[in-house]
Every structure is written in structure tokens, then in C-alpha cells.
């Protein structure tokens, strides 16, 4: 699992590659905390290369969403793959973590 990020004019994109499980979840929290602390509170987590997420990974996304909102921004997800979509739907979190087709589209409407 690895994370990288890029800060654009209107949002920061965090790329998540690999399995977003209990091993990777704390790393995602650290990366998003760093991005938000750096002044980017509009965050897109790009999950196009994340083929697996468990409830720990989901918990980390929720924690990151709260951190972004507390800083006056928001966190959105993009490029959701079938297994991640399934976990979001079964936990009813698809209504809280809105999925966009691409990172560009996530903040494209505002």
C-alpha cells in the first residue's frame, strides 16, 4: 500500500494504491492530516488503484472526512472500484462518502 498527494489550485488529490486495510489505514490518516495541516482542506482521495478496502480503511476515510470538514473543507472519493463500492453500500456509507468518477469531477461543481 502506498499514498502520494498533489496539491492543485482548488483541491488536493491523495492517491491510494493497493489494499486499504488495517495496516494502511493509519498511514492514510497521517497523509490526509499532513495535507489538511498544509492548508488544503478540500481533499479528493483517488481510489482508482485501490482494489480492496476493509472496515478499518473505511474508518480512516471517515476520520479524514471529519478532519477536512473541521478545517472548513470537505473530503470526497473518486475512482471507486467494485469491492470498495460494495463495502460502502453494505455499511450505508455511500450516502456520506459520495463517489465521483474522477478526481477532477469531485470538486468540479463548486
Amino acid at each position: 500500500m502506498q499514498f502520494s498527494y498533489e496539491v492543485n489550485d482548488s483541491y488536493a488529490e491523495v492517491k491510494s494504491v493497493g489494499r486499504l486495510n488495517m495496516v494502511a489505514a493509519p498511514k492514510l490518516r497521517e497523509v490526509v492530516a499532513e495535507v489538511v495541516a498544509g492548508g488544503s482542506s478540500r481533499v479528493v482521495v483517488n481510489l482508482a488503484e485501490t482494489d480492496f478496502m476493509d472496515s478499518s480503511g473505511l474508518g480512516a476515510l471517515i476520520g479524514c472526512l471529519k478532519a477536512a470538514r473541521q478545517a472548513g473543507g470537505d473530503l470526497r472519493i473518486a475512482g471507486v472500484q467494485p469491492q470498495v463500492k460494495m463495502v460502502l453500500e453494505l455499511t450505508n456509507m455511500d450516502r456520506v462518502l459520495t463517489a465521483y468518477p474522477t478526481a477532477e469531477a469531485a470538486f468540479g461543481d463548486d
Binding site: G59, I62, K66
Partner: peptide, 19 residues
């Protein structure tokens, strides 16, 4: 049971049962 939507843990067993 599935916890509230702002909970950051506690979904594992509910998820197993659903799967």
C-alpha cells in the same frame, strides 16, 4: 449492529454478517 455514520470503527462484524 452497524454504528452511526460518524463512527470510525465497529463495522467489522456487521459487515461480516452481511457478506
Amino acid at each position: 449492529a452497524m454504528p452511526d455514520s460518524d463512527a470510525e470503527s465497529g463495522r467489522g462484524l456487521a459487515l461480516i454478517e452481511a457478506l
